[in-house]
């Protein structure tokens, strides 16, 4: 682990129009690290991730990538620079075929042939459906397609928003195995996840967000005991 974080948020205040959702969030992420951001809905996890991906401009505070201030960069510029974001829901174009979805990944500068090789090798069942509309795939297959982007475009940072939403536990498990592999290649991974248990096995660091603030941060084992209370309604100050 290098001393300089590849991605960091410094005292971020952000939200939609004048409503602040994040109230002073700081966190940092190193190469090869899997950081799991947990917490109940409405806590600000997704907002924090969108600040990282450039989709929400912070009202104040700094987004730094490899030490450089990046809060003014557009999401597409960040994506081309090596930041791969898989948004909540399925990160695919439902009315495009599987093949065309892969074509869209070439915007990051990787050749289509290479993308196809990597994607179809890792997920052989996608290659048999290359002319099928992505929206007609099963939930698991759709998530595989969006994960192919993380694999094939060789990003430096991977942001995952609610990867497991609407998927059967067995598939979620498989997906997180892939995430672990990606991290082993030295990629920094930020996972936002409501279903905490699934991700704790993979993560090196975990943070719990509540009411727009980072309530606790530490090794998964350290914060595990806080989860139940954070999710099922014991007030934060009694923790």
């Amino acid at each position: 682990m290098t001393s300089h974080p590849i991605l960091s948020l410094e005292n971020i205040y952000a939200g939609y129009s004048h409503i602040s959702i994040l109230k002073g969030v700081s966190l940092s992420l190193h190469s090869g690290q899997v950081y799991a951001l947990l917490g109940p809905n409405g806590g600000g996890k997704s907002t924090a991730l969108k600040v990282c991906s450039g989709q929400i401009k912070p009202n104040s505070g700094e987004l730094k990538i490899a030490g450089r201030s990046m809060q003014h960069a557009t999401p597409d510029a960040l994506a081309r620079a090596g930041l791969c974001t898989i948004p909540e829901g399925k990160g695919i174009f439902p009315n495009l075929t599987v093949h065309e979805n892969l074509v869209m990944m070439t915007n990051t500068g990787i050749a289509l042939e290479e993308i196809k090789t990597i994607a179809y090798e890792r997920f052989p069942q996608l290659s048999t459906r290359s002319t099928q509309l992505a929206g007609t795939l099963s939930g698991g297959e759709q998530q595989m397609l969006s994960m192919s982007r993380a694999l094939a475009t060789k990003p430096a940072i991977l942001l995952l928003d609610e990867l497991s939403m609407g998927l059967a536990p067995i598939i979620v498990k498989q997906l997180y195995e892939i995430v672990a592999q990606i991290a082993e290649e030295g990629i920094a991974v930020l996972v936002v996840e409501q279903f905490a248990r699934t991700v704790l096995g993979v993560a090196d660091t975990a943070g719990i967000m509540l009411n727009g603030q980072l309530l606790a941060e530490g090794l998964p084992t350290e914060i595990q005991h806080l989860l139940t209370s954070a999710y099922l309604g014991i007030k934060p100050n009694t923790l």
Partner: peptide, 17 residues
């Protein structure tokens, strides 16, 4: 009852594997 229900915890936290 809800706070101690295992199915509920699983739904929220993901099943324990």
């Amino acid at each position: 009852e809800i706070q101690t229900n295992k199915a509920v915890l699983d739904a929220y936290l993901g099943s324990e594997s």
